[in-house]
Design a protein around this nucleic acid. Structure first.
Lengths: 255, 255
DNA sequence: CCATAAGAATGGTTTAACCATTCAACAAGG
DNA sequence: CCTTGTTGAATGGTTAAACCATTCTTATGG
């Protein structure tokens, strides 16, 4: 066999017993042999099953917990419960990358801009009459909140609209990615951004435009409008950030 | 204070010593008090510093390792080394979501399609003369590979071109996301897709088109062409998948 | 100069015990 | 009968001390 095509061997793994146990349990979960909600046997029993010490077993459980595959509960009737894989791990990892300077908030904002555009485009291509009704109902609600000057309630509705558009787009990864990005970016803008009446009016107009484009299946418009919407937001973030320079001394990198 | 606006309390955390240790070490790493490449003291020393047992400390280290913040080496001079946050964790988590059926391969393919479009668009907006030279050099190389019918080498070059476009786009998150998605999708198509001469010709044409659009700063064209490129790929994957139905019985969900 | 063996440093694992939290069953008092 | 408090068992969380396995360095001998 030529050296070029030789199967890409894996480095021989050091015998780490806990890793083997992690793999076995993880397989069982991904297999559906263990389903979400199922409980693993108590530690002292599992210990015997695998024929390892409790300490080693606990290292395995810690890893599975950190992967988001199980949750560990205390007390009688407690133990390891199989979980549904959610977005918490992605959110946490992305958060680490931001905080460690591997990613800048600008990067994330720009990513979000493109992504929200694509989501709006898909939504415009796939929205049913039912979806439109639901969206317009939410927009009406947002308009009411704007009239009343209820900032908190407006923001909630705004978020609900974005979530609904994500649902309509019909792609789970876009939905998760949007949530992960949002959860991470929110940590920063929550501290920064005050929401004035003018800002609400502006936002409401954006939302109306996007929903109209979705209703009329103008997917290109929906994408552009959603992008502009996020872009305006990103600009404000940058203004804020450079004005309050102390927050982030190293050129957009967070500390 | 009204019940509506009551601060969003956190559930009281159970006293888990190892978690506290994880937080302290993680803070030190994100602080840059501990920098990538630095080594933590040996377990027996850390044990004393935190005044906990070795078992508990080891659970902490396992968690940090799983988060991708440290790497643990064996033997004399071994120990915990601080790592740069990379994409491995994201890749792994996304892989878990695919395997557990939370995401379908279609979802990922569609996501990738939109994302590669955005990346190409950014690249078209930001490419310098230097970048263009490098890209065209790679395209020439790919053309040579096509002529020679060297499939492996062509695929390598193809990937290099995509990577270069990602670099030119200048957004770290797009770059990471592309890699994560690619690494996960590759697991499936590597098994499936045979690469014929015709396929290579087709791909080469796509690449030439995209690079030309980038050179001439036709960012809209660059986006569309890149999307089409991925879309064609996605279609082939779906064909393959439905033909070899046994692989995935539950409607596009992987088992 | 190189090969090999011995030893030390370090992570990996085991054992056995005890502590802390939770829940259910049961008892006491109203 | 219902409420309230008590107790005990089940389970995860932590500790301690020892030993095993891997890796690197150093000494030894050819």
């Amino acid at each position: 066999m030529s050296p070029k095509k030789s199967a890409d061997f894996q480095q021989v793994k050091k015998s780490r017993i806990f890793q083997d146990v992690v793999n076995q349990i993880q397989e069982a979960i991904l297999n559906r042999t263990l389903q979400p909600g199922d409980m693993l046997p108590p530690e002292r029993e599992l210990r015997e099953t695998f024929n390892i010490s409790r300490g080693t077993l606990r290292e395995s459980l810690r890893v599975l917990e950190q992967k988001g595959l199980i949750e560990i509960r205390l007390g009688t009737g407690g133990g390891a419960v199989v979980k549904n894989a959610g977005t918490e791990q992605l959110t946490e990892t992305l958060g680490l990358m931001i905080r460690s300077g591997t990613l800048s908030v600008q990067d994330i904002g720009e990513f979000r801009q493109g992504m929200e555009g694509q989501i709006a485009r898909l939504a415009a291509q796939r929205a049913t009459a039912d979806d439109i009704v639901r969206l317009e109902c939410l927009v009406d609600k947002a308009a009411a909140m704007t009239d009343k000057g209820a900032v908190e309630a407006f923001l909630d509705t705004d978020q609900a609209i974005h979530k609904e558009i994500g649902r309509i787009a019909g792609n789970a990864l876009y939905r998760y990615a949007a949530q992960v990005v949002h959860d991470n970016i929110r940590k920063y803008y929550d501290d920064f951004l005050e929401f004035t009446q003018e800002r609400m009016d502006e936002n409401l107009l954006d939302l109306k435009g996007i929903v109209a484009a979705i209703r009329e299946q103008r997917h290109q418009d929906a994408a552009s409008l959603a992008e502009q919407h996020v872009h305006r937001f990103n600009l404000r973030m940058q203004e804020k950030e450079s004005r309050a320079g102390s927050y982030c001394p190293s050129g957009g990198r967070l500390c």
